[in-house]
Amino acid sequence: MFDVFALGPTGWGDEMLMGAVMTVLVSSSSLLLGITLGIVFAACKLSNFFILRAIAEVYTTIIRGIPELLVIYLLFFGGSSAVMYLAKIFGYMGYIELNAFTIGTIAVGAISGAYSTEVIRGAVNSVPKGQFEVGKTLGLSGYSLYGKIIFPQVARIALPGIGNVWQITLKDTALISVTGLVEIMRQSRIAAGSTHEPFIFYTAAIILYLLITRLSNIFFDSAEKKYSKGYVSKEAL
């Protein structure tokens, strides 16, 4: 029964593992894009300009209100045309190809960005206002204020939330299998179809996702510990 997982040309074991590697790669790049978008749109939401707040609000409402599958399809089919349209404005007339990995990263990154926006905004809000004022009074600004005082606190508060966003992102990458990117989900569908053994391949896929989840939990837990040095946990109070 386990012959199907043989490594090498006769079995699907190595293909499934490569699928897992692809899942981790596309999840990580999506999360990075997501956090970047999250920082930008959180800044928009916290800004004094109505237009910026409105843009950020529309972005998070739309992404959180329509199914992830549709977001991915829309970017997959509309993404290249949109990029080419923009390129034409700048005078580039050729064809621009966005490969499955790029499209997948952009789509899942956009979803992940909407959730990150809320997490980061919440974290910034929870830094006491006095800290900004004290920092400014001490003559700090720019990197010294934000890089050394505010960011470490935001990072600490946001970390558990980002851990949740990672979990959402990891699972959403299963949907980009529709764009042809061979990650765990697509690989197990191909193998299940080819061998007519769906049970064993979907079980293998479940185990791979749980393994990635377990490993990333360990990573986020240790990161949380590192950033909360010097803080007393709530449970201990």
Partner: peptide, 14 residues
């Protein structure tokens, strides 16, 4: 498509 044996499909080597 890669899922339409024997026209076009994916073998166990991917």
């Amino acid at each position: 498509e890669g899922a339409y044996e024997p026209w076009n499909f994916t073998d166990s080597d991917g």
